[in-house]
Amino acid sequence: KKYKVVEVKENKDGTVELVVENENGEKKKITLSKEELDKLKAGDTVELK
């Protein structure tokens, strides 16, 4: 499934919390490390299994 990044929030521990949404409007929260996030920004599309 493809999800669009709608919100990006940095946590104090250096991880980043993303809120992503698919075309049905379903939202998910995922947490990434700073390194994983470096290639993402709001409006990008991510694929989740």
Rank of each mutant, 00 (worst) to 15 (best):
T15L: 05
T31I: 10
T31Q: 08
E26Q: 08
K27I: 13
I30V: 12
V16I: 10
E36S: 14
K4W: 09
V16E: 00
K41P: 04
L48S: 08
L32M: 14
K39M: 06
L37Q: 07
D13I: 01
E35P: 10
K34V: 09
T45Y: 15
E35G: 14
V8K: 04
S33T: 08
L40Q: 04
K49G: 15
K2W: 06
V19K: 03
L37V: 12
L32G: 15
I30W: 02
L48F: 02
K9H: 13
Y3V: 10
A42R: 07
K27Y: 07
N22T: 07
V19T: 09
L18M: 07
L37R: 12
T15S: 06
K27H: 13
E36H: 14
E10Y: 06
K1F: 03
E36I: 10
T15F: 06
T15V: 03
D13S: 02
I30Y: 05
E35M: 13
E10M: 09
K34M: 13
I30H: 03
V19G: 01
Y3S: 06
E36W: 15
N11G: 07
Y3N: 06
K27M: 12
L37P: 05
E35L: 12
Y3L: 12
S33A: 13
D44Q: 06
L32F: 07
K34E: 06
S33K: 14
E17R: 04
E7L: 06
E17Q: 07
D44C: 12
N22A: 14
E21S: 05
V19C: 09
N11Q: 09
K49N: 15
V8M: 13
E17Y: 09
V6F: 03
L37F: 13
N11M: 11
V5C: 10
E17D: 11
E10C: 14
N22E: 08
A42F: 06
N22R: 04
E21Y: 04
E10S: 05
L48Y: 00
K39P: 14
S33G: 10
V20I: 11
K49Y: 00
V8H: 03
K34T: 12
D44Y: 01
K49M: 08
E23K: 04
E21N: 01
K2T: 07
S33I: 09
N24G: 07
N11C: 14
G14F: 01
K29F: 13
D13Q: 02
G43D: 10
E21M: 08
D13L: 01
L37D: 05
T15C: 08
V6G: 01
E35N: 13
L48D: 15
Y3P: 06
K34C: 09
L18V: 13
G14V: 00
L48V: 15
V20L: 07
E17M: 10
V46M: 05
N11R: 06
T45P: 01
V6P: 00
E35T: 12
L32N: 01
V20D: 00
K49I: 15
E17N: 07
V5T: 01
S33F: 12
T15I: 05
L40R: 05
D13A: 01
I30D: 00
E26Y: 07
T15E: 03
L18W: 02
K2D: 08
E36T: 09
T45A: 02
E26T: 10
I30R: 01
V46E: 11
G43I: 04
T31N: 08
K1C: 15
Y3A: 07
K28R: 13
V16P: 00
E23S: 06
G43F: 03
K28P: 00
V6Y: 03
G25T: 01
E35R: 09
Y3D: 06
E47V: 01
K9W: 10
L32A: 09
K1T: 10
E10A: 10
N22W: 10
L48Q: 09
E47G: 03
K29A: 11
V20M: 06
T31H: 05
K29L: 12
V6E: 01
E10H: 12
D38A: 07
E7I: 09
N22K: 03
V8W: 05
E36R: 05
L37N: 14
L18G: 00
N11S: 06
K2N: 07
N11V: 04
S33L: 14
K12S: 14
K9L: 14
L40V: 15
E7D: 11
E21D: 01
N11E: 05
G25V: 00
K12F: 12
A42V: 15
E7G: 05
K4S: 04
E17C: 12
N11L: 10
K41Q: 12
L32Y: 06
T45N: 10
A42E: 13
K12C: 13
K28F: 15
K29S: 14
K41H: 06
V19H: 07
E21K: 04
A42L: 14
N24D: 12
K1S: 09
E47S: 05
E17W: 06
V6W: 02
K49V: 15
L37H: 13
V20K: 00
E23I: 10
K39T: 12
K2Y: 08
K1I: 13
E23Q: 11
E23N: 05
E7H: 06
E36M: 10
S33R: 15
L18Y: 02
V8A: 05
V5N: 01
V5P: 02
K39Q: 10
G43A: 04
G14Y: 01
T31L: 12
E17I: 09
Y3C: 12
V8L: 09
N11K: 05
E35W: 07
K1N: 12
V6H: 03
K29H: 12
L40N: 04
K12D: 10
S33N: 11
D44I: 06
L40H: 09
V19N: 03
K27C: 12
E7N: 04
V8E: 04
E7Y: 05
V20W: 03
D38V: 10
T45E: 15
K39H: 11
N22L: 06
L37Y: 14
L18I: 11
E23C: 09
K49A: 15
D13P: 00
K29I: 14
G25N: 04
E7W: 05
A42C: 14
V46R: 01
K9V: 12
K29W: 12
L32S: 04
L40M: 08
G43H: 04
K41F: 05
K34Y: 14
K39R: 09
E47N: 12
K49H: 15
E26N: 05
D13G: 03
E23M: 07
D44S: 07
V20F: 07
K4R: 08
K28G: 06
Y3G: 08
D44L: 06
T45C: 15
V46K: 02
E26A: 06
T15W: 09
Y3E: 04
K1M: 09
K49L: 09
V19E: 05
D13H: 03
L32R: 07
G25I: 00
D44E: 10
V19D: 03
K28Q: 13
I30Q: 01
K2E: 09
V19P: 00
G43T: 04
V20H: 00
Y3K: 04
V8I: 12
K9N: 12
V20Y: 10
K28C: 15
V20S: 00
